[in-house]
Design a protein around this nucleic acid. Structure first.
Lengths: 241, 241
DNA sequence: AGTAGCAACTTGTATATACAAGAATATACA
DNA sequence: TGTATATTCTTGTATATACAAGTTGCTACT
């Protein structure tokens, strides 16, 4: 009697059903507005109770993959307009495209415990292990971005082993976990001492601060704080709306 | 035998429990990191089954109000950092602050049916009634923003009756449904004919397009598309990241 | 032919129950 | 004292069941 006859270890049954549906949707076999099998149908098909099948459908609905209407059924939802609208580019490519030279300095690269805020952003438990990096990016040797990033170790386990002087975190993460969505918020801040020093601006100078959370198929990949010197990036206090 | 002895009509039991917990958290009686009653405790207290109490706690966790750890308990979460970081300002105030004169033109103000994308963004069913407005804002008679907005009628029922030449939609909505959170995405686009005409720029000119979804305590309030002429607003193609 | 009403199927809410798994505390033992 | 072990409380997963409620389509009656 090797193991309990329970499950194939780890993956809960509702998660297996979710994965199955996700695959059908993403490979295009179930197009937009396609009617997904009903709770009862899925229950029979997977040999689970209706409540378990229901959980899979409900969670996918919360995640925006499906749409449900009482009495009618469950359907494949259209992709969020906001998802495809946001273009996320690599800062190294951007600098190169301007014909400038790109360089960077790694200020910090460690494994640490998630604070409450970071845990929330990454969807992890408080105190969970996360990768933490701080990198300054330069355009023609002039700092143009402070990048502080918290990364989910489960989705990018080799993060700490990367040579970030050769490939940016963004480029690495995009490779190992192709991003499907990003939440971004933008604000103007006054540079604190630490950031002012790293970006070579006066303390108190206006900077453009971008918070970005990138998501992949398999979950939330990373949570980044990007700070640009307003004077040097030609974005600043104007961006209040 | 007036009515069935079921419930107080409408509100499901799990929703009542959610409301109760929300109130405690928002009035400060249960501070951050406060340990919320367990599923079993709530079940006894409200006379429901554990699964119903569990649903309330789980949904509030998904919504970011609570945090749960297996074996430990359920706790009040800290407010999302991104929520308080994003400052949303009124464009009329912004223009005034520059010492310029503000004016606007209402191009459209109607009640219509939500398309699939709008329904998704507002968390409503496809085809649900929504308010739809298009307004052009001007700074010294020069157009600086095209604002197209879809509003949830349940949270702002008097929307159509407002005089938007005197108060901006943003100001009105902030008053009737104080915003607690906003998702924003930014991109650069080429102006189409309609927008180019309204903003008095050449068709194909680069514009800054902002999608914003504002949320209040009671739900998603509105979904707006704000387009600024890049040449006139000094933001444009630079904003690719 | 037209329509009212019924039946079937869907999702939504709710309960009672069982066991698994993580975390803290108390207990017994060396 | 220090270390295993057991207990207990917590959340997590899963099932079986019941009824409510919305939608569609069929059927039978007028």
């Amino acid at each position: 009697m090797g193991k309990e006859p329970s499950a194939q270890d780890r993956e809960p049954r509702y998660a297996a059903i979710k994965r199955h549906i996700r695959d059908k949707v993403e490979c295009g076999e179930w197009p937009v507005h396609f009617r997904v099998p009903s709770e009862n149908h899925l229950a029979r098909e997977f040999g689970v109770s209706r409540m378990t099948a229901r959980r899979a459908l409900s969670e996918l609905t919360d995640e925006g993959v499906l749409m449900r209407t009482q009495g009618l059924g469950t359907f494949v939802a259209e992709p969020v307009p906001a998802g495809s609208l946001l273009e996320v580019r690599n800062i190294a490519d951007e600098v190169s495209a301007r014909g400038h030279s790109y360089s960077s300095t790694i200020l910090l690269l460690e494994e640490t415990e998630a604070s409450a805020g970071v845990a929330r952003a990454l969807g992890l438990a408080e105190g969970a292990r996360v990768f933490h990096s701080v990198i300054v990016h330069r355009d023609n040797d002039l700092p143009i971005q402070w990048e502080e990033r918290y990364t989910n170790p489960e989705l990018a386990p080799d993060y700490l082993g990367q040579d970030f002087s050769r490939v940016t975190p963004n480029a690495y993460l995009t490779r190992v976990a192709p991003l499907t969505e990003a939440d971004t918020t933008v604000e103007a801040i006054a540079a604190g001492d630490e950031i002012a020093g790293a970006l070579q601006v006066e303390t108190g100078n206006a900077c453009l601060q971008i918070w970005r959370r990138t998501m992949s198929r398999s979950g939330i990949v990373s949570f980044a704080r990007l700070v640009h010197p307003g004077s040097r990036y030609r974005l600043g206090a104007q961006l209040r709306f």
